[in-house]
Amino acid sequence: MNDALHLHYFVDGDDFTRAGEASANVKKTLRQIGVSPDAIRRVAIVLYEGEINMVIHANGGVIDVDIAPDQITMVLKDTGKGIADIELAMKEGYSTAPEEVRSLGFGAGMGLSNMKKYSDEMKIESTVNVGTTVTMKVNLS
């Protein structure tokens, strides 16, 4: 495996159906460099949930992924409306997603809890009306 690999993605906030492209691309890259299927699945899930959140709540954003031999670090940054109460947002089932998003099968209030569940470390920094940065790490060893 390479010593370090950096990937950068722009998440389009207007196109719901394209959300998941960064996740799919990272998944493909990890497969090519021989990362374990379990770690790939976890990275793909947390990134997809993050992308969906950016599209639903923040009109898009940017994702940076650093792949080191022992750990994958993902930083998802947006300049959206922010999260007023992070503890509440983390609760399974709590959702502020609009109805049209729910009709597509999203907005179950599971996104952030899935991200926490499948990452080894997760940190959320958010300021209302300024934006949110979510940092997640998945260990490879």
């Binding site: 719901f16 159906t17 959300a19 998941g20 996740s23 799919a24 699945r41 899930i45 997809y48 949930e49 597509l104 099968g105 999203f106 179950a108 209030g109 599971m110 996104g111 809890s113 899935n114 569940k117 499948y118």
Partner: peptide, 26 residues
């Protein structure tokens, strides 16, 4: 509900749903 599927479905399972859009495939 797609997030529940991502969080709980096991690899290899047959997934039954009425949710028909491209996000289902993702």
């Amino acid at each position: 509900l797609l997030s529940i599927v991502m969080g709980k479905a096991k690899a290899g399972a047959v997934w039954i749903t009425v949710m028909c859009n491209i996000n289902t495939i993702a």
